[in-house]
Design a protein around this nucleic acid. Structure first.
Lengths: 153, 153
DNA sequence: AAGAAATAGATTGCACACAATGGAATTCTG
DNA sequence: CAGAATTCCATTGTGTGCAATCTATTTCTT
């Protein structure tokens, strides 16, 4: 096998590695999210809101790389569950502002222990994990840049 | 911020990094898979079959970490597109054997260039990519082991 | 200020993922 | 060898992702 074809196979292997580990993480989180009645994407939206409350749908989408087709129904489910409020912005009626309810804020405490449980099985040191986050974010950024380029043409 | 809470945040960051890079890869592949009428999961199934033809649904599921709920409709779509055949195994009628059609085999050539295009934007050396595949596979394996343990109890 | 362009969300349609369940075939066990 | 347990696949229902399209609102241009 030539070096070139090995590299080609590696790209496929890398993509599949991310694809499958992402699902494995999702399953690992589900075990702890199910009792809270949350899915992983819903949990990530709450993580964003716990960090900074009162964001527009677009601001949430920018942070999570998701569009309104995904977020609108997801946010409605979070609203129905009583975790958030959705209100039209008075100054710009195009925007919908998302804010936590008291119940949504209270959920933070219960969710706080989840990454501990999941993190335990990874067997990574602090520095290893940090380096991995950096490297993966770098790849995501390059893929996004490349997609933006080819969308322009 | 204590080291402990940093580590907790890191687990969430790591999970989200994989979650988002996985989608970014999927979008990058989609650009090249769309002309072939394939989705990324369908492409991965074909990759498996190009490597080894005539597998059961379960064997494909074991390699890809997917169950019949996902694979059955996906395989039916690949069958309707003319890429594969689905036939009950004569020796064990519980099993459905998946085999490539001539068209499915022919598709391999057209798909061969895809990882080249995607791999170019990653900016990874051969060794970096290989190490990353190994490390991510290790994490996936640990998550699976942990899930298997907690399922037993 | 009027029309064009851009922006924010919502909606629709399709394709995963996956838990839960069901049915048919096979294997295990006493 | 009969019943129980297991295995394999299919089905159902829920919740994403995302492209494509639509509406309403705002901003830009002339």
């Amino acid at each position: 096998m030539t070096k070139k074809s090995e590299t080609l196979a590696l790209t496929n292997q890398l993509c599949f590695a991310f694809y499958s580990v992402s699902h494995a993480f999702s399953r690992a989180y589900r075990q702890f999210l199910d009792p809270l009645g949350l899915t992983y994407p819903q949990y990530v939206v709450l993580l964003v809101l716990w960090e900074q409350d009162d964001l527009t749908v677009k601001e949430i989408g920018d942070r999570l790389f998701l569009d309104s087709g995904t977020l609108t129904p997801l946010l409605k489910r979070l609203e129905n569950a009583g975790h958030i409020r959705r209100t039209r912005d008075k100054r710009d009626e195009r925007q919908v502002r998302i804010s936590l309810t008291e119940a949504g804020r209270a959920l933070r405490e219960k969710a706080e222990e989840i990454p501990t449980h999941v993190g335990c099985v990874l067997g990574l040191s602090f520095d290893e994990a940090r380096a991995l986050v950096q490297e993966v974010a770098k790849l995501r950024s390059r893929l996004h840049d490349s997609a933006a380029l080819s969308a322009k043409s």
